[in-house]
């Protein structure tokens, strides 16, 4: 078989470096890195810059490895959905075996190296995060329950806790509340998106709340999680890592988010179709800024502290 014929059917077995990098879900990794950095920086214990850099790299690597394992397990449904058809496995650039091998190897390297670079608690938390995302979410609950987004959100919420553990070697109320912030944020964020996109999850056999319980129930779920999210966000501001800057940001953003969620809850699908899902799109956009600004405000508090300005 010539090189040309190998190339023409897409199954070349010659993936480029970028194809393996794409297996690590770089966009998800950027959120992991950002929240892990915040968790590490706001902790009350300083960390050597090299240890901090290495730890963040290994946390990102662990997140990427779980992304590769997710793509390995979900290759069958990725082939059925338009959104995921161009991923490395469905497009034929990388084989399933390669993705499995890369995911397992990088998981092992990331966990062991983080435990050595930082401490055992950080390594154990990273190992649990990978296990939770790959086994509990991807293999078990994603195709079984319409609450899959809630479970998946938990996996994405661990990085700030790991960053905190890198610095302190433990878990505390601050790190648990940072986990809870991302955890409670994920469902309204994703379900707002689900309300205005026509995903083909149903064809792939993935139960989505909008399909299994209807859009009316999804709107109610968004509102419920938004109230829980607001409580967590304000509670985080009352801990040692909060302060006036964070509290102002949290109060304003949560008031806006609750207003947006109530608006989405009141609307019918006819209202939504009539203005091309304006309120749902608005809530989704706000959710993106919401998380970034909350963690950003925590960073500001930590940066101001040495000057006697941050914190309570």
């Amino acid at each position: 078989m010539s090189d040309t014929s190998l190339h023409s059917n897409g199954q070349t077995g010659e993936a480029g470096f970028g194809d393996y990098y794409a297996l690590l879900k770089p966009r998800v990794m950027s959120l992991v890195v950002f929240t892990a950095v915040v968790g590490l920086v706001v902790a009350p214990v300083s960390v050597h810059p090299v240890v901090a850099l290495a730890s963040i790299l290994f946390i990102a690597l662990g997140g990427g490895a779980s992304g590769a394992l997710n793509m390995w397990w979900d290759a069958d449904i990725d082939r059925k959905m338009k959104r995921t058809l161009s991923r490395p496995i469905p497009s034929g650039k990388v084989t399933e075996g390669e993705a499995l091998g890369l995911g397992v190897a990088l998981s092992g390297i990331a966990v062991v190296m983080l435990a050595l670079a930082a401490n055992m608690m950080a390594g154990a938390l990273l190992a649990f995060t990978i296990f939770f995302y790959v086994v509990i979410y991807t293999m078990w609950l994603k195709r079984w329950t319409p609450q899959n987004i809630v479970i998946g959100g938990a996996a994405g919420a661990f990085p700030p806790m790991i960053g905190w553990a890198v610095a302190t070697g433990g878990i505390s109320i601050e790190s648990v509340l940072m986990f809870a912030l991302t955890f409670a944020w994920t469902p309204p964020h994703f379900w707002a998106l689900a309300l205005f996109t026509k995903g083909d999850y149903a064809n792939a056999g993935v139960p989505m709340l909008t399909v299994t319980h209807g859009r009316r129930a999804t709107r109610a779920h968004i509102l419920g999680y938004t109230f829980a999210l607001a409580a967590v966000a304000i509670a985080l501001g009352l801990t040692s890592i909060g302060g006036p800057v964070y509290m102002v940001v949290a109060v304003v953003l949560n008031a806006m988010f609750i207003k947006g969620a109530v608006n989405v809850w009141r609307r019918t699908d006819d209202d939504s179709d009539a203005d091309k899902h304006k309120a749902e799109r608005g809530l989704f956009k706000l959710s993106l800024a919401y998380l970034f600004l909350h963690y950003g405000a925590l960073l500001v508090e930590a940066t101001l502290k040495p000057y006697g300005l941050g914190g309570w």
Binding site: H7, E14, A15, G16, F17, Y21, V51
Partner: peptide, 26 residues
């Protein structure tokens, strides 16, 4: 196909060099 092979080899080489440097400084 050769370009992709080259990108993979160069990429992996750089990652390994980076990893060695990271462990050294760590």
């Amino acid at each position: 196909i050769h370009q992709r092979r080259l990108s993979r080899n160069v990429g992996l080489g750089l990652v390994l060099v980076g990893f060695v440097a990271l462990v050294y400084f760590l």
